[in-house]
Amino acid sequence: MTQLENEILAIKIEVVSMWTLVESQLQKARAAMMHFDRDLAREVVLKEKRVNAFELKLDRDCENIFALYCPVAVDLRFLLAVLKINTNLERIGDIAEGIAKYVIESIGDFDQSIFKKTQLITMFDDSISILADTRIAFEKEDTILARSIFKRDEALDKINGDAIDRVSECIKDDMSVMKDALYVLSIIRKLERVGDQAKNMAEEIIFYVEAKVLKHQKDTAKS
């Protein structure tokens, strides 16, 4: 392997480590919310610093490769994709932190019936699963798996689209759950963004592997 190949491989390992950390952050944010575990929520907030550190290190490492190796073709596309995936992962880290902060801020246990009515748990599980599959697509350079993310993101968008009505119904049924319901609505909005970030990352994987630019195209044209 050339030195550049070694450097690229090191970057790939670093991205996967960051990705795994972000997935874990999201899983812990879910568990903290489900079980109203403030300690776990605090752990998520603390570990967000590690996500940020990963972002800075990846930026610096990519910058060094650009400066020292003048990468071209697939190497150039890989690094450009990594720079964007890095930003997307950092934002998902922020989302996990934001959800954890809701748990810390809220006065007591969330009303679990709202989770069910709004499909929040389904959405959370789907978001985590989409994020994991996008990582696998990145690791294996699997553009078929990457393309499957676009459709799955639509399911998250649907839950998000229905959220206002469902949350309104919950409040209408029982005014005392208003605050919890608003938290849930905020979490749904955040998880919808996780789907968008995963979709962006899937586009970057396809750009890196196939040199095809899918950004700003309709989802039907992407498959």
């Binding site: 550049l4 190949e5 990468p71 071209v72 073709a73 150039l76 596309r77 040199a211």
Partner: peptide, 17 residues
């Protein structure tokens, strides 16, 4: 050529492989 060469031999050459 330098972003998406169509022949694998070109890609291998310009990427030093």
């Amino acid at each position: 050529m330098f972003t998406n060469p169509s022949d694998i031999r070109t890609q291998n050459y310009i990427t030093g492989r």
